[in-house]
Amino acid sequence: MELDILFEDGEALVIDKPGGLPLDRPRAGGPCLEDHLDDLKLGFQRAPSPVHRLDRDTSGCLLLARNPKALKRFSAAFEQRLAEKRYIGIVAGEVAEEEGTIALSLSKVSTAKDGWRMIPARKGKPAVTHWRKLDSRDGLTLVEFRPETGRTHQIRVHAASGLGVPLLGDPVYGSGKGAGRTMLHAAGLTVPRGEKPPIVAVSPMPADFTALGFADHDAG
């Protein structure tokens, strides 16, 4: 598996993570991003480290830091909400409004039967997602999501509980039907770096999105 590189300089790489590739080794074994980190040294002594997380199914822009100093600085930019993230997702239903903001705090719950998941909860951690409708066809809607916060499963829960329609293919917050994975793609990432030019990366729409009849939309 060749990983496409969307941005590269002396301290950062942004790769186009394929959907279905987890960052960490699954308990049951199998491929993960760790297998590729040595190949991503690209002449550097150190292997790069992921700065943030994308779910296993989520494809698109993933920032890797090429040294510990950069990792610390980029991680701080994410924590301070300075990183701009743009996602596109296909939701399993029609969305009536054109755009809006979902502010639902999230909390983690765990049961022996179902494992863990995130739920909207007043006492949870604040989570805010801005969204707008891009296109709809055949009972599905293409939505742009711009999360302000970076909670686990934030967009997935906000789609299901805030928009009222889960992401297509989501096995936890939806029916899991209609697609081979949860249809969420990290389409754009901008990370400021003070005096230096920002890290800017854009990932094209994946083939499984276009196969459903959706075309790439610019980030206007």
Results as ranks from 00 to 15, higher is better:
Ala103Trp: 04
Lys177Tyr: 00
Ser203Cys: 14
Ser105Met: 05
Gly174Tyr: 00
Asp35Tyr: 07
Gly19Phe: 00
Phe209Pro: 13
Ala211Asn: 07
His158Gly: 00
Leu6Arg: 07
Val191Gln: 01
Gly43Arg: 10
Val91Pro: 05
Ser59Glu: 13
Ala103Pro: 03
Gly89Asn: 06
Met118Ser: 07
Val200Ala: 12
Ala186Ser: 15
Gly139Val: 15
Ala215Leu: 06
Glu148Arg: 02
Arg132Ile: 05
Asp57Phe: 00
Arg81Phe: 03
Val165Lys: 15
Lys41Pro: 09
Ala201Thr: 03
Glu34Ser: 05
Arg25Glu: 11
Pro206Gln: 05
Ile90Pro: 10
Glu98Gly: 04
Lys108Ile: 13
Ile5Asp: 06
Asp38Ser: 13
Phe7Ala: 01
Gly194Asn: 04
Pro31Asp: 15
Pro147Met: 07
Glu8Val: 00
Ala77Asn: 07
Val202Glu: 15
Pro198Trp: 05
Ala65Cys: 04
Ser203Met: 11
Thr141Cys: 08
Pro18Ser: 02
Gly29Tyr: 12
Glu2Leu: 04
Lys69Thr: 14
Val157Glu: 02
Ala96Trp: 06
Ile90Ala: 03
Leu212Glu: 07
Thr129Pro: 02
Arg137Pro: 01
Gly19Asn: 09
Gly100Tyr: 09
Phe44Asp: 15
Ala83Gly: 00
Ser107Cys: 06
Gly178His: 08
Asp38Thr: 13
Gly60Trp: 02
Phe78Gly: 00
Arg27Asn: 12
His130Glu: 12
Leu71Ile: 01
Gly100Leu: 13
Gly20Gln: 09
Ser203Gly: 04
Val202Leu: 14
Ile155Asn: 01
Lys72Met: 03
Gly174His: 02
Ser107Asp: 09
Ala77Phe: 07
Ser136Met: 11
Arg56Glu: 15
Thr210Gln: 04
Glu84Ala: 10
Phe78Ala: 01
Gly176Asn: 06
Gly29Met: 13
Leu184Tyr: 02
Gly29Leu: 14
Gly20Asp: 09
Thr101Asn: 03
Gln80Ile: 04
Cys61Pro: 10
Ala201Met: 10
Leu42Asn: 04
Thr129Asp: 03
Ala96Val: 09
Thr182Cys: 13
Asp135Arg: 01
Pro198Cys: 05
Thr149Leu: 00
Ala65Val: 08
Leu82Pro: 00
Gly124Glu: 08
Arg53Asn: 12
Met205Cys: 14
Phe214Pro: 13
Asp39His: 07
Arg146His: 06
Asp4Ser: 14
Gln80Pro: 01
Ile199Met: 05
Leu33Ala: 12
Ala207Asp: 11
Pro147Arg: 03
Leu163Ser: 00
Arg46Asn: 11
Val202His: 15
